[in-house]
Design a protein around this nucleic acid. Structure first.
Length: 884
RNA sequence: GCCGACGUGGCGGAAUGGUAGACGCAGCGGACUUAAAAUCCGCUGGGAGCAAUCCCGUGCGGGUUCGAGUCCCGCCGUCGGUACCA
């Protein structure tokens, strides 16, 4: 930038203060038991979602949340809290490995470079992190504890009775067999259909498939042996325990929907003597089941398929097997399916209904089999109409419909809305012409002993009946699946597991961390064999013992990093007892971290996984709260100047380094906060950056001016005088508003108030230095460099001022007496429209104000000829004269 | 389709049910300057009027209220998430 535009020397004082904070360790906070720790101070834990250090470096989205938490951190410190505010790196991940594959360079090198770049960029922004607590998920000292936590999961099971994780040792004591125990572990091995990507040489999570496909990699479906984590055991607690958290309602809902609890019943049908259980949320519609559908992968399909249908069924199953879950749903414009030739017996009426297979039924949900009720389920309706399967109405929409008597309706040829028809070998049913498909609650019809009952009661009654007859039970189902926890990558935590005689076994804790071996090359083999299996010497331990060659997903490290920050250098435990007790448990709330800020993209998975791990650690007594994050705030996306999402291809990416070069870190910080509400999506504007830059320049010029030689010298207008009443008022109003706005995280309005204050001070002929010092104090959390610099200059020139750093001073108290106005402007309305304004003494009696209002010429002219019905006086605000 | 968020000047955005548009950007006018930049001061929702002033105005249509951007009901639109979950 040109010298001319540099209105204050931020390029000189910003690095100076950053170095000052770093050498003095201004923002390092001691742990209990360490020198300087003050146990009388309340703790406050402010956490940012740590970044994945990509090669592209920081983008302007990062400093948005980071600045918000930085302001909160600095404010809480001034308010007297011990504030824990750390930063670290989520450094495992596929891009580093892809880089290694292309260059042959170890991913560690690439990762280290990226981390150094990220750290440099963050330090340039003057954030008040305690860098002594920095963590890196790829650090062996960190990997050690990630693996240790995995072993806690491996060595635990979920006890249904207490709804808590318990040590496996208890099952061993009960004499359970090895197979029984392995079937109960929270970390277990299962054969699961996965998304295999040959190019990358790894399986992908469902949510990753789209991303890599778009980049031109093929992804196919394969059954593979995988490590799974039993998160489903915690489904109910993951729903229930959201209640005590200060999270946006939308995010809570998102999690609840993801877990997807649904109440219903499992009902046993029979197919040729063979029992087939279906799950339904509408057991009350059992009389309306006109066919059954099995998932194509259902184990019973082979046995029930008749010879005539065998070819068709086989062909259909083959096409389904090739498709991923995604494709199955994408291509689902039209329903497909094949009749098996078999029939099932409906337990409630003995009716024989055809059994189909169709890919709209998933093996992985419920029992993989459904009873189809086309009259009351959209999907079944679509399928039934397509394949000409009968539709029976068993739920009337109104009570009147439920009362319609069979004898009163005509035959299908009649014109009325209802008619009677026959279905199957059984009796006659009422048909309703005007309803295509009704999936709401209503009243049971055509349903024998349920007839006339409202849906909820019909459900209760049929479930009781099924239970009595041993034909079914009430059940709860969750959409949530167990967490597929293994990847075939190199750049992730190896599992601390060995295999012997086909069985897995944990390695001793003393052998942790188990690090991945160096490899000759990082090219995937093309087979689903994990990359680590190339390291034959590492894998083969002799005596038929081999290492597990899968690695953990990137989520693993981010599941517990907030715990490690509390005691980042502890070599004995993942977190020391004392540190845990102080930083995580001392707020009297279920959640540990007091404020967690990050993007919505992690609203479901990261937050759900971390909550799950935390609960396991809680159950096992390793942490003392049931939830990791008490308050959650999602910052909104920052769009490019064109209002589009920032992307390289659009060329609308803003690089924070460039902004800092041109306007300084304080201006970048301030602009990010001034753009609008934190949670909102908002477009970037360089003009807007210039606007806040000009504001900072105005603050600078309150204190400094240039002399003849062009050097910065103290502003001659400065004076060690008592501020006048108006100045005092605006300064104290600013202290009040900025404090309140930081607490409600309304940073944009806090900045606007400081602008107002600055504009007022600028207008003064002689500016009281005490007022400026107060302004600098409240502006400090937002623009820490500029304010410290000016404060130091000011204090050097005026001995009456406190010479200490702003960062270490208490937040100033405002004086309410200074905010009180002598006179208040009152708005006079007639019938709700503003007609006049007048000044009255503060605290004037309502009667007095009313009298003045009615005496107003303007008011009089508007009520002329009308009768005054009512006069409303809002003290200190307005008078509304109602007249007609 | 379902779920969620949002809809206010030319733009970003302010407004415990009580003066709509704070603050900033852009624009216009003025001061300073040989000139420009920077800076400082003023104006700036639309319409009518010489003016005082008046009328209209927070996506659309209703409602509650003395009073609605704000609360309620019904629509429309934009963005985000999700999708055969029985």
């Amino acid at each position: 930038m040109s010298e001319r535009r540099k209105q204050f020397p931020f390029d000189e004082f910003e690095p100076k203060w950053q170095a000052h904070w770093e050498t003095r360790k201004t923002f390092s906070v001691p742990n209990p038991g360490e020198p300087g720790f003050d146990a009388t101070k309340p703790k406050f834990y402010v956490l940012d979602m740590f970044p994945y250090p990509s090669g592209a470096g920081l983008h302007v989205g990062h400093p948005e949340g980071y600045t918000a938490t930085d302001i909160v951190t600095r404010h809480r410190r001034m308010k007297g809290d011990n504030v824990l505010h750390p930063m670290g790196w989520d450094a495992f991940g596929l891009p580093a490995e892809e880089h290694a594959r292309k260059t042959g360079e170890h991913p560690r090198i690439n990762t280290e470079n990226n981390v150094n770049n990220f750290r440099r960029q963050l330090k340039r922004l003057g954030f008040a992190y305690d860098w002594d607590r920095e963590v890196n998920t790829t650090d062996p000292a960190y990997v050690r504890w990630t693996q240790w936590i995995f072993l806690q999961l491996y060595h635990s099971y979920f006890d249904e009775a207490t709804q808590k994780a318990r040590p496996i040792a208890e099952l061993e004591a009960q004499g359970l067999s090895r197979d029984e125990i392995d079937a109960k572990r929270l970390a277990y091995v299962a054969e699961a259909p996965v998304n295999w990507c040959p190019d990358l040489g790894t399986v992908l999570a469902n949510e990753e498939v789209e991303e890599w496909r778009a980049k031109g990699h093929a992804v196919e479906r394969r059954p593979l042996k995988q490590w799974m984590l039993r998160i489903t055991a915690y489904a109910q607690r993951l729903i229930d325990e959201l209640d005590g958290l200060d999270w946006p309602e939308g995010i809570k809902l998102l999690q609840k929907n993801w877990i997807g609890r649904s109440e219903g019943a499992e009902v046993d049908f029979t197919i040729g003597g063979e029992k087939v259980t279906v799950f339904t949320t509408r057991p009350d519609t059992l009389f309306g089941a006109t066919y059954m559908v099995l998932a194509p992968e259902h184990p019973l399909v082979d046995r029930i398929t008749t010879p005539e249908q065998k070819d068709a069924v086989e062909a259909y199953r083959r096409t389904c097997a090739a498709k991923s879950d995604l494709e199955r749903t994408e291509l689902a414009k039209e329903k497909t399916g094949v009749f098996t030739g078999g029939t099932a017996t409906n337990p409630v009426n003995g009716e024989e209904i055809p059994v189909w297979i169709a890919d709209y039924v998933m093996m992985s949900y419920g029992t993989g089999a459904i009873m189809a009720v086309p009259a009351h389920d959209e999907r079944d309706y679509e399928f039934a109409t397509q394949f000409g399967i009968p539709i029976i109405y068993v739920v009337g929409q109104t009570h009147e419909q439920a009362d319609i008597k069979f004898e009163a309706v005509g035959s299908p040829e009649d014109k009325g809305p209802w008619y009677a028809g026959k279905f199957g070998s059984f009796g006659k049913y009422l048909y309703y012409r005007e309803t295509e498909c009704f999936s709401g609650d209503g009243y049971a019809i055509n349903s024998g002993f349920l007839d006339g009952l409202p849906t909820p009661e019909a459900k209760t009654k049929i479930i009781a009946w099924l239970a009595e007859n041993g034909l079914g039970t009430k059940t709860v189902n969750y959409k949530l699946r167990d967490w597929l926890f293994s990847r075939q990558r190199y750049w992730g935590e190896p599992f601390p597991i060995v295999w012997k005689d086909g069985r897995h076994e944990a390695i001793p804790e003393s052998e942790l961390p188990l690090l991945a071996p160096e490899l000759e090359d990082y090219k995937p083999s093309g087979s689903p064999e994990p990359i680590l299996s190339k390291a034959a010497a590492w894998v083969d331990l002799g005596n038929g013992v081999t290492r597990e060659t899968n690695t953990m997903p990137q989520w693993a490290g981010s599941c517990w990093y907030y715990l490690r920050y509390c005691d980042a250098r502890n070599g004995e435990r993942f977190i020391g007892r004392e540190a845990e007790d102080y930083w995580l448990a001392k707020n009297g709330k279920p959640g540990s971290v007091d404020l967690y800020v990050g993007g919505t993209e992690h609203a479901v998975l990261h937050l759900l996984y971390a909550r799950f791990w935390h609960k396991v650690l809680f159950d096992l007594g390793h942490v003392s709260t049931p939830e990791p994050f008490q308050k959650l705030v999602n910052q909104g996306l920052i769009l490019g100047e064109d209002g589009q999402k920032m992307s390289k291809s659009r060329g609308n990416v803003v690089n924070p380094d460039d902004v800092v070069d041109e306007y300084g870190a304080d201006a970048l910080r301030l602009y990010e906060m001034f753009m609008g509400p934190l949670e909102q999506v908002k477009p970037w504007s360089m003009k807007g950056v210039e606007g806040v830059f000009r504001f900072l320049a105005r603050v600078w010029r309150l204190v400094m001016e240039t002399n003849q030689e062009g050097d910065w010298v103290l502003n001659a207008k400065l004076a060690d005088i008592e501020p006048d009443k108006a100045t005092d008022k605006v300064v104290h109003a600013t202290i009040k508003k900025v404090g309140e706005d930081i607490e409600s995280m309304s940073f944009n309005t806090a900045i606007s108030q400081m602008m107002v204050c600055t504009n007022e001070l600028t207008k003064l002929e002689r500016v009281p230095v005490s007022s400026i010092a107060l302004l600098l104090q409240v502006l400090n959390p937002f623009a820490p460099h500029l304010t410290e610099e000016l404060n130091a200059t000011l204090a050097a020139a005026f001995p009456s001022l406190d010479a200490g750093e702003l960062a270490n001073r208490p937040w100033p108290a405002y004086d309410p007496a200074k905010l009180i106005e002598d006179e208040i402007e009152i708005v006079l309305q007639v019938n709700g429209k503003v007609r006049d304004k007048l000044f009255v003494a503060n605290g004037a009696a309502n009667e007095e104000v009313e009298k003045l209002a009615l005496a107003s010429e303007k008011v009089k002219s508007f009520i002329e000829g009308l009768t005054v019905r009512k006069v409303i006086v809002v003290p200190g605000r307005l008078v509304n004269v109602v007249a007609n």
